[in-house]
């Protein structure tokens, strides 16, 4: 090979590297770890009742033909409190919302729901993050849309806002 062209090789390689850096800087890492369970059937999980008077939730609850929202949350999580009112409005619109609370206690949950309202039909307490890991959930709050045959249709990462509401409602078949 011609030595002259070989000498330009480092320049070309470094230019390519800088171009990649530039693209990387323009699109900073969103730090979002999406679940690989979207599009797949619900994992097998059992989350026992978190509080007296309200049932827990398990895989078998999601095969009766009714689509639902499954919200992974925690009483200690600040954005979870922020999305509380939105979840309440979705419930009032006719959506069924179930919850799985992670790293939580019945006492703290009761206080949290007393403050922010209780949109949940069922609330399961996750035992050692088992359900959270089975869902491929990387944090709280996250909301999964589950169809009537028990398949995960969609994962919403972060608090649900008013803008997200119509889309999520449509996915569970509720006219806003």
């Amino acid at each position: 090979m011609n030595r002259k062209w070989l000498l330009w090789l480092p320049f070309v390689l470094v230019s390519a590297l800088f171009a990649a850096f530039f693209v990387g800087l323009r699109n900073p890492d969103d730090h979002v770890i999406a679940s690989r369970m979207v599009g797949k059937p619900l994992p097998e999980f059992v989350a026992a009742a978190a509080m007296p008077g309200q049932p827990g939730t398990a895989t078998t609850d999601y095969r009766d033909g009714k689509p639902r929202l499954l919200n992974i949350f925690a009483s200690w999580c600040v954005p979870c409190a922020a999305e509380g009112p939105v979840l309440m409005r979705m419930k009032q619109a006719g959506a069924e919302v179930n919850g799985i609370a992670v790293h939580d206690t019945a006492l703290e949950l009761a206080k949290f729901l007393g403050r922010n309202g209780n949109p949940y039909t069922r609330i399961g307490l996750d035992d050692g993050g088992r359900a959270q890991m089975a869902f491929g959930s990387a944090g709280v709050p996250e909301t999964f849309v589950v169809d009537g045959r028990g398949n995960i249709l969609y994962q919403h990462i972060g608090p649900v806002t008013d803008e997200d509401m119509p889309r999520l409602l449509a996915m569970v078949g509720v006219k806003p």
Binding site: V102, G129, M133, A138
Partner: peptide, 10 residues
């Protein structure tokens, strides 16, 4: 992190 602990346990 709690979730890291959960993964270690699992």
């Amino acid at each position: 992190a709690d979730l890291a602990g959960d993964m270690r346990r699992m």
